[in-house]
Amino acid sequence: MKRSIFKYIITSLLTVAALGLFLRSCTSASTSKPTITVSIQPQKYMLEKIVGDKWEIKCLLSNGANPESYDPSLTHLLNLENSKAYFRIGNVAFESAIINKVQNNNPGLKLFDNSEGISLIRGTHSHGDVEHSTDIDPHTWTSVKNAKTIASNMYKAVVDLDPENKAYYSRNFKNFLSSLDSLDREISQQLQPYRGSAFVVWHPSLSYFARDYGLEQISLSPEGKEASVKMMQ
């Protein structure tokens, strides 16, 4: 008799637990957010400022990954194909390498280029001993002024995807622009005495930043290789 009661209690508890898991999964499914995938972490930060809690933002590159040598994993590509839209940063090699595959596997995926309207810098990345003037510097996001253009492109894209929440996105976008303006003014003030000066970096990733504030960027290794004696001089 005791064994039967014990068996009944265990069965009842398992049933309740299973029901709880089922209800939780249903609730989670019904309240899950649509997803937008971006290429790099700076995009994720900026887009989250605009969309708030309306979207889940996934990023192809993990923290610390190099966008110039990145090779997306199968998991990252699957995340992208499950998204409502893909926001490209533009002018990064890995994006061009995967875009056809992504479009073929998910023809309904909407694509947006966040770097539209940015005045691009060329010739900062050399190959071998030859400087290719047609090479586009991909690091557009290192400029606060460019960040405003990127954010503006993001805002327009999000409104296109979800026009019903335009007022919400507009408020967030204006607040973010205000913070970028404040940052730009602060940097301009701090660097004003150094306009016309040069700074040294390892990889030429601050070309747009240098342009904004009248500085000269000197890269020790445009290709990521060990600097020669001549380069060091």
Rank of each mutant, 00 (worst) to 15 (best):
I99E: 09
A97V: 03
L109M: 08
K110Q: 12
E81W: 06
A93S: 11
I99C: 07
E68T: 12
V102H: 02
N100V: 09
G64W: 05
Y86M: 02
G108K: 13
F94M: 00
S96M: 01
L74H: 15
L78W: 09
N63M: 08
L60I: 05
G108Q: 14
P67D: 03
S96W: 02
V102S: 07
P67T: 09
V92G: 02
L74D: 13
I89P: 00
I98H: 06
L109S: 05
F87I: 03
P72M: 01
P72R: 00
V102P: 08
N82L: 10
D71V: 11
N100C: 00
L80F: 02
V102E: 02
I98C: 06
K101P: 07
L111G: 04
A65P: 02
L111T: 08
L74I: 15
P107F: 01
L74C: 12
F94S: 04
N79K: 09
T75D: 14
N106C: 12
S69Q: 10
A65S: 11
D71S: 15
F94A: 00
S69N: 12
P72L: 03
N63F: 10
P107G: 06
P67Q: 00
D71I: 11
A85H: 07
F87R: 01
N63R: 11
E81D: 04
N79T: 11
A85D: 08
K101V: 09
Y70W: 14
N79Q: 13
E68A: 14
N105V: 01
L111H: 05
Q103L: 15
P107N: 04
A65E: 11
I98R: 04
Y70H: 14
S83M: 00
N91P: 09
I99Q: 10
